[in-house]
Design a protein around this nucleic acid. Sequence first.
DNA 1: GTCTATAGCCGGATAGAC
DNA 2: GTCTATCCGGCTATAGAC
Lengths: 191, 191
Amino acid sequence: MKLSTLSRKQEIYRTAAKLFKEKGYSAVTMRDLAAAVGIKAASLYNHITSKQQILSEIILDIATQFTQGIDAIASQETDTITKLKAVISQHITLTADNPYGMAALNNDWMHLEGKLDRYLDLRNRYEKKFRGIILEGKESGELKEVNTEILVYSILTTLRNLYLWIPKKAELKKDELIEGLCVTLLQGVER
Amino acid sequence: MKLSTLSRKQEIYRTAAKLFKEKGYSAVTMRDLAAAVGIKAASLYNHITSKQQILSEIILDIATQFTQGIDAIASQETDTITKLKAVISQHITLTADNPYGMAALNNDWMHLEGKLDRYLDLRNRYEKKFRGIILEGKESGELKEVNTEILVYSILTTLRNLYLWIPKKAELKKDELIEGLCVTLLQGVER
DNA sequence: GTCTATAGCCGGATAGAC
DNA sequence: GTCTATCCGGCTATAGAC
């Protein structure tokens, strides 16, 4: 969808996410945001109700997508490696769709006021489901006997920070990226 | 070293790093910092010259350690796997020493004013050396023929974000952590 | 070395004209 | 729906007493 066909409200959200990625929520002023959209700060309030509401909409929207996605993956009747590939693929897809929002999700969630608990719930649910997939794979013998927490940490960290990297490597096709990350994360780099 | 034996200046730096980790540089006020140290905001200025100087000291100190460390590792005459293990080990050691500073390095570098270019230089030098080690390993056949950028990205991301995780897992011995991460990152998780 | 007081500026948000 | 004008509170940093 082209920017020109977005509603002004959507344009404001997208621009805000971009600025939040560059400087963080606290350092972005409503005057910065207004200038980036091409209007005055007061005019923003015809489209949004507060700076805080912009943040919580951006973050909860993405967090909900991730949680719903992993619920679907975890309940599939298939092997662990297939599930992990689906998780990797989901991260790449959602991040490519909305890299700026992913940055806000990663870096600015602690500035949520009313919706902080809701966000933390979603994040915990996601992590529990992911850890469940890993544990299943260890029990079935599909995964190595490495410390579970190290494994959960290192895969999730790589996936959560894709937003830093995907926009710079636009020439990498999505399929190559999925394939490359699956090999690197699952089979390692050592020959 | 116990906190009580630190100079007030050092106490301020450490406290600031901790607060920066929790809320980000922009959201931490000099009043917050002063309250955490147990004095009034104005009194901070007997020990430091500005909020900005606190940030740049925290970040450049760590960035310098990392760059010097990888210079030493890269110039060793040894195989690639040994070098990569040394890089992993360095990250774990420096992060365990100063997890709050690592958070500021990762998340608040864009708020550096006078020293931003110096920081970017150090970071680029680090990344170039690291990529050099990876390329060497691919040429010598020690590493798989996976896309170099995917590999560089996924290892560096995991290492750079250890600060999120190391303090919560204090029960993990440093040696176990090094061993576990080396296996996970280098040999993968799939059996 | 810490305090109170305050300068000077910038923040989010609102009122009301057009 | 955008503007100008403005409120009011919070920000970093300084001045000067103790």
